[in-house]
């Protein structure tokens, strides 16, 4: 009897010994979580700031406040990774690094990430329950983003109908068609494609017509998800003009064209989709480096993984 009672104890000791042998040395190489100096802190109304500070600041600011258990390896590795990743997505303490329109889009993205229960991370809330966001707080965040300038932006500028402004070299598609930094060439073919959706993106004051090539349209008709290689989506974006007497809003100036091309091998790192964006009638390729596509897929990966990472498709 005695012997049989000792065995489990021995096992516990052995387990503890192994844990100590592994866990203690791990502490010496445990990452140190530092708070770099604040560059430009986001300015928000007090109640909104309080919600975001509590739920998001640990990973998305230079004010990370880790609990004692966050600093113990191996948990500290995960925490350090989440903070590093969080700060690269957006950093409330380096907020003005984002142009104003991007700042607004990020705030809308935050609301959506919260609404879709993607953020704060479930694993984080499990050990930091105070970081959870209530339905009332989400409503407050929604009314805040609805008060941002882009929400009611009206395009009142005279409509420019041609890229051939005085002194500008006119673009001829085919010979010098612009190419995105990740190698996607602009082509005007989409203007002959079918429409897969039409949208009012009221978060930023734009309206869009979304074109799909034959492979894309066929896939929708056959209810085929994920979409096959060769599927292409092109989104044309305009500003929104004043509402007329009967409530109609027409497109204002052309803003940009956004492209998604499915090639599961070529674009493996971005879930099989190649992204491109060309700005203005002169179709200036968007982004500073080819990494711009990471920004695209980050949001698509977070919010629409079930729809093969595409937002603008007709679904029930």
């Amino acid at each position: 009897m005695k012997k049989s009672k000792m065995n489990p104890l021995k096992m516990i000791f052995a387990f503890l010994a192994i844990a100590i042998v592994i866990v203690i040395p791990l502490q010496f190489s445990s990452p140190v979580i530092e708070n770099p100096p604040v560059k430009s802190e986001i300015e928000l109304p007090g109640d909104i700031q309080a919600i975001l500070q509590r739920a998001c600041y640990d990973c998305h600011s230079n004010h990370s406040q880790t609990a004692w258990f966050d600093r113990i390896a191996p948990a500290s590795y995960l925490v350090a990774h989440d903070i590093k990743e969080g700060r690269t997505r957006f950093n409330f303490s380096d907020w003005k690094a984002n142009p104003p329109a991007v700042q607004e889009l990020l705030l809308w993205e935050m609301v959506n990430a919260i609404e879709e229960h993607k953020m704060p991370l479930k694993s984080y809330v499990m050990v930091h329950p105070a970081a959870g966001i209530s339905a009332a707080e989400l409503t407050a965040l929604k009314s805040y983003v609805n008060s941002l300038p882009g929400r009611h932006k009206i395009d009142t500028a005279r409509i420019i109908r041609s890229a051939g402004a005085p002194g500008a070299a006119s673009k001829t598609a085919g010979t010098n068609a612009p190419v995105s930094l990740n190698g996607i060439k602009y082509s005007g073919d989409y203007q002959n494609w079918k429409i897969i959706s039409v949208t009012d993106k009221y978060d930023g004051g734009s309206m869009r017509v979304v074109y799909g090539n034959d492979i894309m349209v066929k896939a929708i008709k056959q209810r085929q998800l994920p979409f096959p290689d060769g599927a292409k989506i092109v989104k044309a974006v305009w500003g929104k003009q004043h509402e007329d007497k009967v409530g109609n809003i027409s497109p204002g100036n052309f803003q940009n064209v956004q492209i998604m091309i499915k090639d599961s091998k070529k674009y493996k790192s971005t879930e099989g989709w190649g992204f491109a964006k060309f700005e203005g009638l002169r179709l200036k390729p968007s982004g500073k480096t080819a990494l711009f596509a990471t920004t695209c897929i980050n949001c698509h990966r977070l919010l629409v993984p079930e729809s093969d990472f595409v937002f603008n498709i007709p679904t029930k």
């Binding site: 429409i195 929708i220 209810r223 085929q224 009967v246 497109p251 093969d308 007709p314 679904t315 029930k316």
Partner: peptide
Amino acid sequence: HPALAPEYLYNAGDQKVISSLINN
């Protein structure tokens, strides 16, 4: 996966898009 809704598509044949309108 969500259910795709091809019934929301309109087949405009060879016609091209002139413009779009939002009416809130």
